[in-house]
Each structure stands twice: as structure tokens, then as C-alpha cells.
């Protein structure tokens, strides 16, 4: 028997997970549908709300869902009876870890597709004029991924995710509390603080530091302005390398934590 790696075993593990957890995936799309439906139905201009959903809410929901999903998917290692059952399945720890990671990566496009499909359907319910794909683009869903935005989004996701995974493993007894604190923390850091600075800071300015630039946002004549200061190429490469290495190191740490887990 191959004790190093078997792709066949990874596929079997993925099959087990999908068959046992399909309700969780269905529920996540259901919750998403409720959020997407509730915002434009609160009154006012549905187009404005849909723009808000696409531009502002999608990244938060995506990061939040991925983190929660990560905690949940590795939860099989935290409850004793489940962990015993799972650890005793004849496959290597790496195959078990990889099968879960593959699922998380696969979930990313599935979730994104579901999100925009829901926005498309609900947009057509609320708007008088047909809400087709080109109008959605006008509303700016592509802008969420425009230019360096998508790279920044991936940086945040792939750095937060293993951090969350490690957190879920170390604080297993308080996973719900930890999940809530982590999500609130993400929201405060990425959205609440920058918006607060813009509203209440004496100079009405906020700063976002990214691997490739610093973005300063400020209010001028009642409108939000942005100033983007790009870094030199070598500094961008160095920052990116630090991000990638930090993410990888966190994934490796999580793997060894799981591999050497005692029940």
C-alpha cells in the first residue's frame, strides 16, 4: 500500500465530505440569498443597495464565509468522537488536509457564482428596467476585482484563512466566540475604521496599507477622494513574497498542528 500519497484516497475523502455536508453548502447559499434579498427590499433606491451589496458587501461576506467555512471544515478534528472517526480513516494526514483545502478553493468560485446569480435574480425582481449582466457591470461588480483590487482581496483572504484555521484549532472550545470575534474584527479593520476616520477624523482621512501601495482616502467638497501612492517594483515583490510566505507558513503550521493532534 502507498503510504506516501494517493490521489484516489484524496478523491474518496472529498466525496465523503461533500456527501456528508451538502446541507451546509445549501444553507450558506440560502443565508446569502436572504442578505441579498433583504437589503434592496428595505425601501429606498434598490439600485443603490445592489451597488452597495456588490461593491462593499461581497468582499466582507466572501472573507467571512471562507473563514467560517474553514473553521467548520476542519471542525472534524476538534470534537473527540468525530476526530477519532476521522483520524482513523486509512489515509495520510496530508491527504486529509489537502482534501479539505481543495474543497475550500473549489468553494470560492461556487460561492462567487451563486452570489452574482442571486444578485442578478433579485435585481430583476426589484428593478423596473431589466437587470441584465451589462447593467450589473455598470453597477460595478467588476470593480470589486478591477486592477489590483482582486489581488488585495486574495492577499487578505489567504492570509486570514490559515490564521482563522489556526485560531479555530487552538481555541476549539470557544470556536463560536472566536468566529464571532474574528468576523467583527475583520469588519472593524477593513470597513468600520476607514469609514469612521473619513467621517470623524479631524482631517477626515483614512489610510489603507496594501502590499503594492498606500491608499489615502479623504473628503473634499463633500465627496470622497482617493490618493494612491504606489511602491517601487522591488518593494511590491518583497511585500508580496512576505505575504505569500506568511500565508504558507500559517498553512504549514496548521497542517502540523493537525498531523500531531492527540485525541
Amino acid at each position: 500500500m502507498n503510504d506516501i500519497f494517493s490521489f484516489n484516497r484524496v478523491l474518496k475523502l472529498i466525496k465523503i465530505h461533500l456527501i456528508e455536508n451538502w446541507k451546509m453548502y445549501a444553507a450558506s447559499v440560502g443565508i446569502l440569498a436572504i442578505i441579498v434579498f433583504l437589503l434592496p427590499s428595505m425601501g429606498g433606491n434598490p439600485e443603490k443597495y445592489l451597488t452597495y451589496i456588490i461593491r462593499e458587501t461581497y468582499p466582507v461576506i466572501m472573507i467571512g464565509v471562507l473563514c467560517l467555512f474553514t473553521g467548520n471544515i476542519f471542525g472534524t478534528w476538534t470534537k473527540e468522537s468525530k476526530a477519532i472517526f476521522y483520524i482513523n480513516i486509512p489515509a495520510t494526514a496530508f491527504e486529509k488536509f489537502l482534501s479539505k483545502l481543495v474543497l475550500i478553493i473549489l468553494y470560492f468560485p461556487v460561492f462567487t457564482f451563486s452570489f452574482f446569480l442571486l444578485v442578478y435574480i433579485i435585481g430583476n425582481i426589484f428593478m423596473k428596467t431589466p437587470f441584465n449582466v451589462s447593467r450589473m457591470m455598470d453597477l460595478g461588480f467588476i470593480k470589486a476585482f478591477e486592477g489590483t483590487g482582486s489581488i488585495r482581496f486574495l492577499y487578505i483572504t489567504f492570509l486570514l484563512q490559515p490564521l482563522y484555521l489556526l485560531g479555530a484549532l487552538y481555541f476549539k472550545k470557544y470556536q463560536v466566540v472566536f468566529s464571532s470575534v474574528a468576523l467583527i474584527g475583520i469588519f472593524i479593520l477593513l470597513f468600520f475604521l476607514p469609514h469612521s476616520f473619513l467621517s470623524y477624523h479631524p482631517y477626515r482621512t483614512s489610510l489603507n496599507i496594501w502590499p503594492d501601495s498606500i491608499t489615502a482616502s479623504y473628503m473634499k467638497s463633500g465627496a470622497q477622494q482617493s490618493l494612491n501612492i504606489g511602491f517601487k517594483t522591488w518593494l511590491v515583490a518583497l511585500n508580496t513574497l512576505i505575504y505569500v510566505l506568511a500565508s504558507l507558513a500559517l498553512y504549514v503550521a496548521a497542517f502540523f498542528k493537525l498531523k500531531e493532534k492527540e485525541i
Binding site: 500500500m1 502507498n2 482513523n88 480513516i89 486509512p90 489515509a91 495520510t92
Partner: peptide
């Protein structure tokens, strides 16, 4: 926790 050991034991 090798697969060849795990498929030979059940707890």
C-alpha cells in the same frame, strides 16, 4: 498513522 497501519486497525 500510516494508511497501511490504519487499514489494519479499528478503534
Amino acid at each position: 498513522r500510516k494508511p497501511s497501519s490504519l487499514n489494519n486497525l479499528f478503534y
